[in-house]
Amino acid sequence: GGVGMPMGTFVPPKTLWLPAMKGKGLEIMGTFARRAGVIQMEMTLTNKAMSVMTDFAIQFNRNSFGLAPAGPLQVPTPLSPNQTIDVSLPLNNGGPVMKMEPLNNLQVAVKNNIDVFYFSCQYPISMLFVEDGKMDRQVFLATWKDIPNENEAQFQINDCHLNSDAASNKLQGSNVFTIAKRTVEGQDMLYQSMKLTNGICVLTELRVQTGSPTYTVSLKCRAAEVSQCVFQCYEAALKN
C-alpha cells in the first residue's frame, strides 16, 4: 500500500515508469503526491548504465488538466553508475490542455546526456482536488438537482471495512469533503464534494450499509467523463 501522510493524503507507491532497458540504463520509478497544496511528481532515478549521466531535463506532452513542470528537473549531476537518487518535481496546471485517453494519462519526455526517453504514466485525479473544495450546502443541493440524471455514474467498492465516519475522515485527507450525513433504513448516506484545479466540481453520495463491506458511490458532475477517475480515487483512498 501507499504511505499515509500526517494529513491523511494518500500517496500511491512508486511504480516503474521507465525500465532501464528502454532508458539506455536510466531507470525511473515514480508517483504523484499533493503536499501542502502543491502537486509533486516524485521520482527515483537509477543509473544502470556503465557511464555517468548528466544534463537531465523533463518535458510533458499537453494533457487533460494542463499539468506542467513548475520548474526545471533538479538532478545533482553527474549520476554515477549504480547511483540512485530521489527527486521531487513540483507541478502546476498552467500548461497546454488536450484531452487524453485515459483522462489522467501523462506523456513524459526525459532527456539526459545519452538520449531522450519517453514514457506514459497515470496520476490519481485526487492530486487535482483543491483544499477549498467544500461546497456550500445550499449550492450542493441546487447543483445536485440541476445536474441531469444521465450525468450520474454509480460504482461499488467491495471489501471495505470502515464505518462511515472513518471513511469520511480518510477522504477528507484527499480533499473530499463531507457536507451532510443522513441515516436512512440502516444506511449512512454521505453527501460529499470536491473541486478540481480547473474548477470542475464533483458531487457524490457515498452509501455505507451497516455491517456490509460493499459501499455504493454515486457521482454527479457536469463533466461526466471525470467520474471514472474520481471513483478510482475513492477506491484507492478507502482501501489503503
Binding site: 450546502r137 445550499q138 443541493l141 445536485w144 451532510a180 443522513r182 436512512v184 433504513e185 444506511q187 448516506m189 453527501y191 453520495e205 454515486s218
Partner: peptide
C-alpha cells in the same frame, strides 16, 4: 431558518434516494 431548511432538504434527498 435557512439552516433548518437545508437540514430538511438533505433528509428529503437521502430519503428519496433510498425510496425513489
Amino acid at each position: 431558518e435557512l439552516e433548518d431548511g437545508l437540514d430538511e432538504a438533505f433528509s428529503r434527498l437521502a430519503e428519496s434516494r433510498t425510496n425513489p
